[in-house]
Design a protein around this nucleic acid. Structure first.
Length: 214
DNA sequence: TCATTAACACGGG
DNA sequence: CCCGTGTTAATGA
């Protein structure tokens, strides 16, 4: 868990001293357990979260009511969607769920605009967070539009092993299917195909990438 | 053509 | 037993 002093250090890496003080006095550091819902469809967004530790999953429903994952927020990241909602006093179009035990700072919405004027570091922080999300969404749009599912799966697995630094990935076919917005049948079939091609090995809840992968 | 949905059998934990 | 996995058949976009 994060103490106030640690928090101050952490925030000082991004923001100027005066803003750090304001953040600490104006906002609230909270811990929520896995599965907790921080934002939900149609609900008012009364604060903007900055993730201190843990992971926050942000998702959205499509026309048919299926949920797709927009992005994950980790270390020091904040939710661009929440930001726009707060500023415009709109209702949330996304749902945000704690992926594991999560610590966030709740920035009260009145402060967002004020700090934007007052603190250059806040402005660039917000701006960067938008840019980051935007680029990420562009990349996934590109992948949906131009890549077939098998290529997307290969890219997905490569990514997972890169971020974890391991060649084995501990996920069920179902979890993969959910994240990629498809059905398990398809994932199972594609994975089996890759196994036959000697690109990987399949176990229960585990996929081992071989050196021939990619 | 290729994804989705539903259904079923297998088997490991 | 429960759940993840492998497969198939029917249906749809």
């Amino acid at each position: 868990m994060m103490s106030i002093d640690n928090l101050r250090d952490k925030l000082s890496q991004i923001f100027e001293r005066e803003l750090v003080n304001e953040i600490i006095s104006a906002s609230e550091l909270i811990t929520v357990e896995e599965g907790a819902v921080l934002m939900d469809y149609g609900k008012k967004v009364k604060f903007m979260p900055i993730v201190i530790s843990g992971t926050l999953r942000v998702m959205r429903k499509d026309e048919e009511g299926r949920e797709i994952i927009l992005y994950y927020l980790t270390n020091n990241e904040s939710c661009a969607m929440a930001y726009t909602c707060c500023m415009e006093a709109k209702l949330s179009e996304v749902k945000a769920v704690a992926e594991d035990t999560l610590q966030i700072i709740k920035i009260p919405h009145e402060k967002l605009d004020e700090w934007l004027m007052k603190y250059p570091s806040w402005k660039s922080y917000v701006f960067n967070s938008f840019t980051q999300r935007f680029n990420e969404l562009l990349r996934s749009l590109e992948s949906v539009a131009f890549q077939k599912l098998d290529e997307r799966l290969i890219r997905y697995l490569t990514n997972k092993s890169k971020v974890s630094g391991k060649s084995s990935i501990q996920l069920s076919h179902n979890q993969i299917a959910e994240e990629m917005g498809t059905s398990r049948v398809v994932i199972s079939r594609l994975l089996k195909q890759l196994e036959n091609d000697k690109k990987l090995l399949l176990y229960r809840n585990e996929i081992k990438l071989l050196s021939t992968f990619g």
